[in-house]
Amino acid sequence: MVDSLLLEEMFLKHYQEWCLLSFSYTANLDDSKDVVQSIFIKLLQKEFDTPIWDLKKYINASIRNESLKKIKRDQRTFSLKNYSTEVPSYESELIRSEISKTLFKEIDALPEQNKKVFELCILEGIKYENAAEIMGITVNTVKYHLKKTFKILRLNLRDVYLWMF
């Protein structure tokens, strides 16, 4: 355990400096204050096996690490919120189902080469070079087929696109 009087003295002396350090990562003043305070709470509660030789450097590194963790948690929470904002209803599921059916019907109606390139590069995520090797064509031909495919899909799905919004 770190000496609580020393921690209190350091906290009062360097609090603003450490909040600014955390703010440089989080860009949110409330979050930066929370990070600094949580570091000191952890230091007060934690038992150390080895002594900390430079407490200020240790706290600076802890603040940096905790700020980066906070950013990562917030990004994960933000992305989860974005996906879960809409409550699925029967109508929205029906519309989604119809859009999927139409999309797959249009993909099936593509010329064979375009369909194969689309499936490899877009649906399976294979790189252009690898798709060209698999199909025995050049990379430029793969790009041509994708360009042609997107043009066809854009044209045939323009009504569906309007329904999505």
Rank of each mutant, 00 (worst) to 15 (best):
T26D: 00
N114F: 02
Y161A: 11
K56E: 13
D3Y: 03
Q113Y: 09
H14Q: 13
E91S: 02
T141K: 06
G125T: 03
S32C: 04
T149W: 00
S67M: 03
S62N: 12
L12P: 02
K42D: 14
N60F: 14
E8V: 05
R73K: 13
F104L: 12
S67I: 00
K151E: 15
A132P: 03
L44V: 07
E66Y: 07
L21Q: 13
K46Y: 03
E98M: 12
S22I: 01
R96Q: 13
D108C: 07
I71D: 04
P51Q: 15
Y128T: 14
D30F: 14
T85Y: 10
K72V: 09
L103H: 04
S100L: 15
Q75L: 14
Y161F: 15
N60W: 11
K46F: 01
S92N: 13
Y144I: 06
E93Y: 12
S24H: 09
K116D: 09
E124S: 08
E124W: 05
K101C: 08
K56P: 03
S79V: 15
L155A: 15
S38Y: 09
H145G: 02
P51E: 14
I107N: 00
K151L: 15
E86M: 10
Y58R: 01
R73P: 08
F78S: 11
V160D: 06
Q45G: 10
D159L: 10
N60Y: 13
H145W: 06
S100P: 05
A27D: 14
I52V: 15
I134N: 02
D54P: 01
K42T: 09
E129A: 12
K42A: 08
F11P: 03
V87R: 08
D159G: 09
D34M: 07
L120G: 00
E129D: 04
D34I: 08
T85E: 15
E66G: 05
E129I: 06
E106M: 15
Y15N: 14
E9Y: 12
A27H: 14
N140F: 09
M10A: 04
D108A: 08
K33H: 12
F23S: 04
Y58T: 00
N114K: 00
Q16D: 15
V139I: 11
L68C: 08
Q45F: 11
D74S: 06
V35Y: 01
L21H: 05
I137C: 04
K57Y: 11
R64C: 14
S100H: 13
E91F: 04
A27P: 05
Y25N: 04
I59E: 01
M135W: 00
E112C: 07
I39G: 00
N130P: 10
F150S: 02
L7S: 04
Q37H: 13
L153P: 02
L123P: 01
S100W: 11
L6F: 06
E91C: 05
L43H: 03
Y128A: 11
S89E: 05
F78A: 15
S67P: 04
A61S: 13
A131I: 08
E9K: 11
E91V: 08
E66R: 08
G136N: 01
K115G: 01
A109C: 10
S84D: 11
R76P: 05
Y25P: 01
T77I: 15
S62Q: 07
E133M: 09
A27C: 12
K105L: 14
E8H: 03
L123M: 06
